[in-house]
């Protein structure tokens, strides 16, 4: 018999390393043609770090985004990024980018002030135009002109205009040995998941028929990528909940999965036929424009929502992940025996 159930969960995911002390760096150069080359250390593992850090750089400079090139191909000249893990990049790296942009602006200000024999503090930015406060009519230059002047010299002074920046949420903290006190947490994101399932009581197979997942992400820097992260984390979450285990118990420990065909990850057909996502924003005080990381979290919410839905369907709480057909059937048998 197929029994239907619905369940929900409310979960969190923290951003960055527990205990902090996890810095990132960035560098940005004004190139000879007036574009900007942004160099970051974050590894693009598919989350789109290059894309969003470019968005932050464009906003910090106030220039069209097409003017910004971005690379994370790090060799000898490489900004440090501790890594693309702990959902840390969206909280930490934008600060490094903004600090690098501020540093570059300072360099540009000095260069232009030198050119005009003016005070750097009187140099103002308006997108791609730089001007002398109070004398914009006569004293103004575009980024193209600055770039050409600095890089090629000619009538101007030569210069190499590069800004660098770094940031970390807090200095490193260890746990207090007695109380475990350790207050350093970068930011926390929140998710809510609602799962609808169909449990086949003959076979123990659970189908997730509909799933709604919402994440509160501080600021959705790029909603297209946020969506991908919400719907994508479900893959590992569903596997965790229902099918994936690399630890065998029968007949011996030697029989671990050795092919993707016997390590059961969700396929197109296992994904919920109806999949709905939502984004909520509570700007985080520690983030650039309120942004914080959340992407790992979308794996956290589905497992308990699915377990709650199974409970709603068949009246038993499963306490072992993954809830394989065998686990389900054993739970049903135990329930029957106790009745």
């Amino acid at each position: 018999m197929k029994k239907k159930g619905v369940g929900m969960s409310c979960v969190l995911h923290p951003t960055g390393n527990k205990g902090a002390g996890d810095p990132s760096q960035a560098a940005i150069q004004l190139k000879p043609d007036g574009t900007f080359a942004l160099l970051v250390g974050a590894v693009d593992i598919g989350q789109g770090s290059n894309t969003i850090l470019r968005q932050f750089a464009a906003d910090a400079l106030g220039v069209p985004i097409e003017k910004i090139l971005v690379s994370n191909f790090a060799d000898d000249f490489a900004p440090l990024c501790l890594g693309s893990f702990a959902s840390r990049v969206t909280l930490i790296d934008p600060h490094a980018v903004v600090n690098a942009v501020e540093d570059l602006k300072r360099r540009i200000r000095e260069w232009v002030a030198n050119e005009w024999e003016a005070n750097p503090e009187d140099i103002e930015f308006d997108g791609e135009t730089v001007y002398l406060r109070g004398d914009r009519e006569r004293r103004s230059m575009t980024m193209d002109q600055i770039a050409a002047g600095a890089n090629f010299g000619g009538g101007y002074n030569p210069g190499f205009l590069v800004g660098t920046g770094a940031w970390q949420p807090a200095k490193f903290h260890a746990h207090d040995p007695e109380t475990g006190e350790m207050p350093a947490v970068g930011a926390i994101s929140f998710g809510c998941c609602i799962a609808e399932v169909e449990v086949d009581t003959e076979t123990g197979v659970v189908d997730v028929t509909r799933l709604v997942q919402v994440w509160e992400v501080g600021k959705a820097v790029n909603p297209l990528l946020v969506r991908a992260q919400i719907n994508g984390g479900l893959h590992i979450g569903m596997g965790y909940a229902l099918t994936e285990s690399s630890y065998p118990y029968w007949p011996t420990e030697d029989y671990a999965p050795e092919k993707l065909g016997d390590y059961f990850m969700p396929t197109f057909l296992d994904y919920p036929p109806e999949l709905i996502y939502g984004i909520e924003e509570v700007p985080h005080p520690a983030g650039v424009q309120g942004a914080k990381g959340f992407s790992e979290g979308s794996s956290n919410g589905p497992p308990p929502a699915i377990i709650a839905a199974i409970h709603d369907a068949i009246g038993v709480w499963i306490d072992t992940y993954p809830a394989t057909p065998e686990v389900i059937l054993k739970a049903l048998e135990a329930k029957k025996a106790s009745e």
Binding site: F56, V70, A220, N222, P223, A291
Partner: peptide, 9 residues
């Protein structure tokens, strides 16, 4: 630009 949906760079 932060807040805009855009394809991957």
């Amino acid at each position: 630009y932060v807040g805009q949906a855009m394809p991957r760079y």
